[in-house]
Design a protein around this nucleic acid. Structure first.
Lengths: 346, 346
DNA sequence: CACCATAATTGAAACGTTTCAATGGTGGGG
DNA sequence: CCCCACCATTGAAACGTTTCAATTATGGTG
């Protein structure tokens, strides 16, 4: 039994192809009565629109591109753990719509812009979702210039507003820092992503803000940066503890970095929770199993990714980018008393 | 500047549309000279085939479906970490071919078969890749009955041969167990995935085989099963240590389970490496950061996923399924002296 | 009743591709 | 010089859909 098409519905109902097409899309030019009849016939035949014909005619791809970037050098490292969850969330959000999800894997910055170009120029997708927004992100500039719909995971500093879903990293970093200050800590370190990432910058800002509010000086040696991997956390922790005046508390940007830091601590015999406090951001319910489990700021990845999908659909429907933006607040999960520093500095 | 089409090439070169089409596909019916001329014109115009027209005409989708299943209940757990890497590998393998990657997210068994059905019946893809093969997997039976190309990550016990890439779990479990026996362990536990998964069965077999070769009895209470999450590892570890005769060594199926086990150990004050030995399988270079870092069997996920993509292309080209199968051998990574049990049992 | 506006429906074209029967051209054999 | 076989190319149809000008049916108005 061949697949039902508009033509087969037309034959069965006796209407013309044009009428059936219009009826199926509930065009007002078709009499209500006729519409009902055609709809009934369509479901009876199990009609499902053929996307290829549709696409060919309308020149739309009905596809949403999701960029996943796997950096060559860090391919063997633990990166992009959250991607599965993000993808699943987006997928769920667009289920039921006509759109399909296509994954484009890229490695490194260069290919990413190139991939974007071919998506736009060859019409590989109608909209694109990507993450890792950078300061003055060329991808955003390009897509805005082309008026191509997109949603980013992570806001950016571009002039024009664009659609995004973001964790409020600045507030999260501020609160984490302020809380440690409240506990009596005076030297607080930050293990941060590379500076060209927008959210790294935001974290810096929140951190610095809390320090100054707490009347503490800003010491640049207390900030370590690197890719958001366990390896970065490990080397950064080791380096920080070798400072003439090591920190009494360390804030890691995500769970991978935290894992690396805890690993380094164990190797060096540094007792986490006593000699030094380690806390994490971007909790995906994994760090609860770390040894010892750190206090964290929870990232509701389910809601976040669902929003990404919904925003994409809205963007495709032509919504004003400035109306489809959302900052998500991270929530503190206390897993440790998070003791004050060894020698209360007063 | 509109996109170049066959028609525009035809106009430019003076040949007919049919000739251009044939020439572009290097049909022997077109004179070599003409072919060259047309190819030159095509590249000059930057011609890229329009998949929609192609698909409409040929009734092929030129798409490869990748199923990602996110179980509803475990949505908040750490599952499918490796998926990003798998996806990236597949993506790289099919780059350059005409095929595109589409992700279909499913939740649970039921929807998975349903998703598969709609992929086959609606022609959403030409082939499909999925994992988590089960004993008597209905998905495999269905796809074989429909003669629909597919590759699985994980072999299965179906009658007919099918294309797969798999880690040799049986050997890995055998070697892990045998090694522990060699170190003097007499009570060795297994934290394993649910029994309906093929590779869980394989692990059981390898484990049991090593036990009998080592003249050790098989104690069913030493096998704990559950989803491959940290939570499973945690509860299983706790339960195992409460046995009247607890194990002196524990083999976890993957890193997530290992993480959970280590977490439970830390909570209960059990000293890993002294009171009990914990080792892991399916190492993705993450467990090296665990506390303490366990010995593991490395899973070359890069090669694995690349093969998945290549096999899919071969399957789509009509290759005999029995020729596109591969078992990958895991490699031991020693991170601990892995001391013998506390009281050498003799 | 003639006319016209409106409502409903039709028919054909178009999107870019492949496929295949039909056409025209070339050369060789008799 | 004719016929035939062969080679290269053409033209048109088809895939399933949308779109839009053209057509027909339906009432309402003067």
């Amino acid at each position: 039994m061949a697949r039902a098409t508009i033509k087969s519905i037309a034959k069965k109902t006796g209407y013309s192809v044009g009428t059936v097409s219009n009826a199926l899309r509930d065009a007002p030019s078709v009499k209500q009565e006729t519409r009902d009849e055609i709809h009934k016939a369509a479901t009876a035949l199990g009609y499902r629109v053929n996307l290829d014909g549709l696409k060919l005619r309308t020149n739309k791809s009905y596809r949403i591109a999701v960029l996943v970037s796997v950096s060559e050098d860090a391919a063997e490292e633990w990166e992009g753990v959250e991607f599965t969850r993000i993808l699943a969330g987006i997928s769920k959000a667009v289920q039921g719509s006509r759109y399909q999800l296509s994954v484009f894997s890229t490695s490194g910055d260069d290919t990413e812009l190139k991939t974007l170009r071919s998506i736009v120029q060859e019409g590989l997708a109608d909209g694109v979702i990507f993450s890792g927004t950078r300061v003055n992100d060329p991808r955003i500039a390009y897509l805005q210039a082309e008026a191509f719909p997109f949603v980013t995971y992570g806001m950016s500093s571009s002039d024009l507003p664009h659609a995004y879903v973001d964790l409020d990293s600045e507030t999260a970093a501020y609160e984490a820092t302020a809380r440690l200050i409240g506990l009596g800590h005076r030297r607080i370190a930050l293990i941060n992503p590379p500076d060209d990432l927008v959210y790294a910058l935001q974290r810096r800002l929140g951190y610095a803000d809390a320090l100054s509010k707490g009347a503490l000086g800003f010491d640049p040696t207390l900030i370590a940066t690197g890719p958001t991997t366990a390896e970065t956390g490990q080397t950064a922790f080791a380096a920080l503890m070798q400072l003439p005046k090591p920190p009494s508390a360390i804030i890691c940007a995500n769970e991978a970095m935290t894992l690396g830091a805890l690993s380094a601590a164990a190797k060096q015999g540094v007792r986490v929770g006593q000699d030094v406090v380690v806390i994490s951001n971007d909790d995906l319910k994994l760090s609860q199993y770390f040894v010892p489990p750190p206090s964290t700021y929870y990232l509701p990845i389910g809601e976040t990714s669902r929003l990404l999908g919904e925003f994409m659909l809205q963007a495709l429907a032509g919504a004003d980018p400035s109306t489809i933006q959302k900052k998500i607040r991270a929530q503190l999960i206390e897993r440790q008393p998070d003791t004050p520093p060894p020698e209360p500095a007063i």
